[in-house]
């Protein structure tokens, strides 16, 4: 029995070996925005896979076998970091037996390590909810952050795949030129948003608000990461029933009920904004992501 099992396992092992050969660079992105960025910067040489969809909450993902299998084959792992993926990424890395993407190697990067992180705190008391001591991890909603991460990501691609470094360099130059043009256009479109006041479900948008000059006046979650409570929503109702906020914002994966409830009682428009690529039908890549965010925000203001 034992010997037979051993032999069967050995045969199974040998049968899977040829699959290891693969010419493309496999990029494992924890979130869709980094997969999209890798595609912009890697062209045909990069095969990017996103571990999550825009409809999933990246804080809470199961360390599924399929994800472990993807990390096993990855040449580069790129994640937001700042502990956003703390509940599942370590388990993937630990089970994937891939030394090329372990933290500390060129094949592992956390995008948020390279931008100015907001909301960093030294107060680690969990009574205050989901604490990210290294700051808010949802950095992708400021296009300037995307540009900074693009530089680092392109450098990493060139480090891992040195033979093709001119190729990646060309793609980077092409991307950054058109990206910067797009940013200027977005900033022109966003002038009327400066000084607007928003209520956000979770603190998912601090980088967007920081970029556009929008003021975050409240959150639907009383404690970050815990569902909004009736008491807190009641408090918000009395606080904002006479105005004081222009819009209520939630991400596609956040429960609709709390923001709709508050919207009904205060008359403040509640909207869904795509937090990343794929969050709405319109947001199909990084460019259309910001196009759509601005279109939706401007839409609420023009309604007033």
């Amino acid at each position: 029995m034992y010997k037979k099992l051993q032999r069967t396992l050995l045969i199974a092992l040998l049968a899977t070996l040829p699959a290891a050969a693969n010419a493309e660079l496999n990029v494992f992105a924890c979130e869709p925005e980094w997969a999209a960025l890798a595609r912009e910067l890697g062209g045909d040489l990069v095969e990017a896979y996103s571990a999550t969809t825009a409809l999933q909450d990246p804080h809470y993902i199961q360390a599924r076998p399929s994800l472990i299998a993807k990390v096993r084959q990855a040449d580069l792992v790129i994640c937001s970091g700042a502990q956003l993926e703390i509940g599942w990424l370590p388990a993937l890395l630990q089970k994937a037996n891939n030394r090329n993407v372990m933290p500390g190697t060129a094949g592992y990067m956390e995008a948020s390590s390279y931008v100015l992180r907001l909301n960093a705190t030294t107060d680690l008391d969990r009574a205050k909810g989901d604490i990210h001591p290294q700051g808010n991890p949802h950095i992708q909603t400021n296009p300037h952050n995307i540009a900074v991460v693009a530089r680092v990501l392109s450098d990493r691609l060139q480090e891992i795949d040195q033979v093709n470094s001119t190729y990646y360099d060309e793609y980077f130059e092409k991307f950054i030129t058109s990206w910067n043009e797009a940013v200027i256009e977005w900033e022109e479109r966003a002038v009327d948003l400066v000084g607007r006041r928003a209520i956000a479900h979770h603190r998912s948008w601090v980088y967007l608000f920081d970029w556009l000059g929008i003021e975050e006046v409240a959150n639907l979650e009383a404690i970050p990461g815990l569902p909004p409570t009736a008491a807190h929503l009641g408090k918000l109702t009395s606080e904002f029933s006479a105005g004081g906020a222009d819009v209520i914002i939630r991400a596609p994966y956040q429960h609709a009920k709390p923001s709709e409830w508050l919207s009904e009682r205060t008359g403040i428009t509640a909207i869904v904004l795509p937090l990343t690529v794929g969050g709405t039908e319109e947001a199909t890549d990084l460019y259309s992501l910001f196009d759509d965010i601005l279109a939706r925000l401007n839409g609420t203001i023009n309604d007033d």
């Binding site: 994640c79 370590p90 500390g104 948020s112 900074v148």
Partner: peptide, 19 residues
């Protein structure tokens, strides 16, 4: 932005709970 971050980037967070 990058310059402000150079100190943090020098010691990137590892994502590991032990950071």
């Amino acid at each position: 932005y990058s310059a402000q971050q150079s100190t943090i980037a020098a010691a990137p967070s590892t994502g590991a709970p032990s950071s």
